[in-house]
Design a protein around this nucleic acid. Structure first.
Length: 321
RNA sequence: GGCGACAUAGCCAAGUGGUAAGGCAGAGGUCUGCAAAAUCUCGAUCUCCAGUUCAAAUCUGGAUGUCGCCU
């Protein structure tokens, strides 16, 4: 019985949307109605030292229903989409064993993608390879590496832009270590991986509506001690390039703490970057075919959809078993 | 009231006779292990009117507006 979920898709409910849309409070509602447990699907809320700045659910909120994968990672550590997925799947299994509903809540589109559609089972790549490629890119120019990619994996090269350094390096490092091209790996997506299945419920927000909310949220964060939080984090991890610092809010505050930015400019920039991020998130979710969109005013409808979807998932699972 | 300067996209701004750089903001995309990342695409005929010229954002005159100084 313990391995039945490895054969059948794991049923989940996904709640996504841009930052500041109101996912956290809605998630609590879903948890209450569906008897759910909340699993973080956000690449920044995993960091231990930034609970305020990354807008993690408050301790009270986290105490009201079980929350998973929040604030467990050190600032100098990073996590990949694949690693997150593995952890999330484990949590999902646990939740299901308790006969609760796994609620995946967050704003990181790629994590939802990895969870619902799988990700190529590429082994961990030696960081040295990437470092070497990055250095070559610095010295010879990224065009050289792109030309190389065109030779070894023309199909993938055609899919990305010649300036897309991150993806060019990634494709080359994978090939260098595994001997297989990125394109080949992509064909193996989903194999030997537990699948998750469920609705992708997305909060649809208008940026004009969101902007004042984001501004207000920054004020609240400051009142809650965002600056002190950044100070404390800096004491623990003074390396500005550490993965945990590459988040909106923390990077601007760090610049302020280091005297590189006036406070008022820092706050302006923080807001600006947050808004731009929300826009990118909108773009991402808009492009998902399976996404179902709801305005915040239609939260009720969303909840009903989640309930209905869960019933359907239950039935399907039992049929499969 | 007088004198002077300026007037280029939402903002900043280059361009001094040959048919409008750039930055920011904004909009729309891409996305397979860094994703709060990386990356791509998109905008004006130069305040208005008249004139000079083959040709004007660029020269001349006038109008309007803004800013500064003066009385």
């Amino acid at each position: 019985m313990s391995n039945c979920y490895t054969q059948t898709p794991l049923p989940v409910i996904c709640l996504a949307g841009p930052t500041g849309a109101g996912k956290t409070s809605l998630a609590l509602r879903l948890a209450q109605i569906l008897n759910g447990e909340i699993i973080n699907t956000d690449s920044r809320q995993v960091y231990r030292d930034f609970p305020i700045i990354s807008a993690q659910p408050s301790p009270e909120e986290q105490a009201s229903f079980p929350h998973h994968l929040y604030g467990f990672l050190d600032t100098n550590k990073k996590i990949s989409a694949g690693e997150w997925r593995a952890m999330a799947v484990e949590k999902i299994r646990d939740v299901l064993k308790r006969e609760h509903v796994p609620l995946l809540v967050g704003g990181t589109g790629m994590y939802f993608e990895a969870l619902l559609h799988g990700i190529a089972p590429i082994p961990p790549i030696d960081p040295k390879l990437r470092a070497e490629l990055e250095e070559r890119a610095d010295q010879e120019g990224i065009q050289k590496l792109y030309h190389k990619l065109q030779e070894v994996d023309p199909a993938y090269a055609a899919k990305i832009h010649p300036h897309d350094r991150q993806r060019i390096v990634r494709a080359l490092e994978v090939l260098a270590q595994t001997g297989d091209t990125f394109t080949t790996w992509h064909t193996r997506t989903g194999l030997s991986m537990p699948k998750c299945q469920g609705p992708l419920l997305v909060l649809k927000v208008d940026l004009e509506w969101l902007l004042p909310r984001l501004a207000h949220r920054i004020t609240i964060m400051l009142n809650q001690g965002a600056i002190e939080e950044a100070q404390a984090a800096f004491k623990k991890c003074p390396l500005a390039t550490a993965p945990g610092w590459t988040a909106i809010g923390s990077m601007e505050l760090l610049a302020y703490l280091q005297g590189r930015l006036e406070l008022s400019l820092c706050l302006d920039l923080w807001l600006k970057n947050t808004r731009a991020y929300a826009k990118r998130q909108n773009t991402w979710f808009r492009g998902r075919k399976e996404a179902q969109f709801f305005a915040m005013q239609d939260a009720e409808t969303l909840v009903q959809c989640a309930q209905k979807a869960w019933e359907t998932l239950q039935n399907n699972i039992y049929v499969d078993i």
